[in-house]
Structures are given as structure tokens and as C-alpha cells.
Computed example of a mutant assay.
Amino acid sequence: MSEGNMATFPCSTQRGLLISETWPGYNLDVFTLPNHYCEDLECVFIPHGVIVDRIERLASDIMKDIGDNHITVLCVLKGGYKFCADLVEHIKNLSRNSERFISMRVDFIRLRSYCNDKSTEDLQIIGGEELSKLTGKNVLIVEDVIGTGRTMKALLSHIEKYNPKMVKVASLLVKRSPGNETYRPDYTGFEIPDIFVVGYALDYNEHFRDLHHICVISEKGKEKYKV
């Protein structure tokens, strides 16, 4: 990859690491990937090591903001489970070596709003019957990716009915979607162009969750695994 291309790599902003529209990603042949996926991907968009380092910084920011609290972590399945697990582990490690301490319990919720690679208006909340336990609690919602923001706004509106003490949102990815000009989570890993990415537990119809890196799916991959 040329030095000119490297100039388009993420830069740090308050919105997370900003990845430009012109970032081409890395060639697939410089990383280890499952052979059965290689023809279904265009590039490695964010390498696993960069993801892990960024999550460690998010954990540090969360410790500074809401340390000395008991937190209920609400993990949005299925795509958020890897991000959530790594984020919680980093917070625990920081907490062990700090004068501040975060006591955490993790609950899970599942949202459905995608058909193939398109977000729909229909939001289904699975596991919502447990949300009554959030009354009076400090809540950290952990999400994999926020696109238009409609899904997260709907979830926040639903959670507010149970009167939590505090609600913060951490999202690994935020897309620069034309439909999202107002909502930003409290903690963002990466802000990316409005493209469909897979890997690191993000899926396309339940495929690609086992990739360590975040990758751009090819049109061939979309056609192969569409429902």
C-alpha cells in the first residue's frame, strides 16, 4: 500500500477514530483469514489489533467518567457480544489497578432491524421483559454499530420507561449515514463511511461473525449469503 493511501487512515476526533471515505483498507493477502471467506470480502477495513487497542482506550474513558459506580451493562446481541466482552474485560483490568472501582453485571438484549444489508423501520426487541430490572440503575448499553440512529433512539425511548438512574451508550462503530445527523453515542470506537462491514461478531445473515478483523463484504458475498 502506498504512502498516499496511508494518509487516509483514521484520525482521532471526539466522535471516535474517523475513517475517511477514501480509506481503501488493507489487501486480504496480508492477513490470515478463513479460506472459505476470501472470495466474499473486498478488504480488511480495521485490523483486529487496532480494534483491541481502541477498545482499551474506550474502557479508560468509561472508567474516568463513571468509575465508583455499579453499572448494568446491557449488551445488544448478537453483533455486540465480542465488543462487549472485550470492553468489560478491559474495564475490569483497569478497575483492579485503580483507586476507582466499577462493579458490573451484564445483561443481554437482542434487536432485529436488518434484512440482508438494509436497515428497516421494524424494530423487534427480544428479551425486553428483563428491562424492568433497570429501574434506578446506571446503564451502559453496548452496541456493535449505529447507522441511521433510529434503532438506538427507539431502544433508549423504550428503556426510559423504566426510569433508569443513568444511561450511557458505547458503540464500536458509527456510520456516516445520510439518515443520522443528530444522534451520537457517548463512546465511539470508529466513525466509518456508510458501508456494510462484517467480522468481529458483525454478521451478514449470520455469516462472518468468526472473522477477527472488520472487513468490507463484496457484492459476491452479499449475493452468496442473502436470504
Rank of each mutant, 00 (worst) to 15 (best):
V169G: 02
T8P: 02
K118F: 07
E191T: 12
N69K: 08
T182D: 14
D203G: 10
D107C: 09
T151N: 10
R176E: 06
K165V: 04
K226D: 10
R176S: 04
E181M: 15
L173H: 12
F108C: 00
N97T: 13
T135I: 04
R110E: 12
T148D: 06
G199D: 00
Q14P: 11
I71T: 01
T8S: 11
Y26Q: 14
F101P: 01
F83T: 03
S95R: 02
V44H: 04
V197W: 04
T22Y: 14
L173W: 11
G149D: 08
E206D: 15
A7N: 11
H158E: 13
H90F: 12
G4W: 14
D186F: 06
I46M: 11
H213N: 12
F190W: 02
H70C: 10
R176Q: 03
K82H: 07
I214V: 15
V142K: 01
F190Q: 02
S98D: 05
H207S: 04
Y114C: 00
G136Q: 09
H90V: 05
L123D: 02
P185S: 06
T22N: 15
T151Q: 02
G4K: 13
I195F: 07
V52F: 13
G127R: 06
H48Y: 15
E223K: 03
E3A: 11
K222E: 04
C115I: 10
R15P: 05
I159V: 15
R15W: 12
D61F: 04
I102M: 04
S60P: 02
G128I: 10
C75V: 04
N69G: 07
G49S: 10
R176H: 03
D186Q: 07
L94Q: 03
R112H: 15
F196N: 01
N93L: 12
S20L: 07
R176M: 10
H48K: 11
M104S: 11
T22E: 14
F108A: 05
K137I: 04
P193W: 05
Y225S: 10
V197T: 11
G49L: 10
R96Q: 14
D122Y: 09
K168W: 12
L156F: 08
R15G: 11
C43K: 03
V139P: 01
V106L: 13
Y81W: 08
E42M: 02
G147I: 01
K161G: 08
G16S: 02
R110P: 05
K222V: 04
Y183S: 03
P47Y: 12
T182V: 13
D194E: 10
T148C: 05
C75P: 05
V106P: 12
F31P: 03
F31G: 07
V52L: 15
Y37I: 00
D210H: 15
H207V: 04
D40M: 02
G4V: 11
T148P: 01
G67A: 09
Y26H: 15
H212F: 06
M1S: 14
G79Q: 01
D65R: 12
P178T: 06
V30T: 14
S2D: 14
P10Q: 09
L134N: 03
V44N: 00
A170F: 06
E89R: 12
I217Q: 01
T188L: 12
I125M: 07
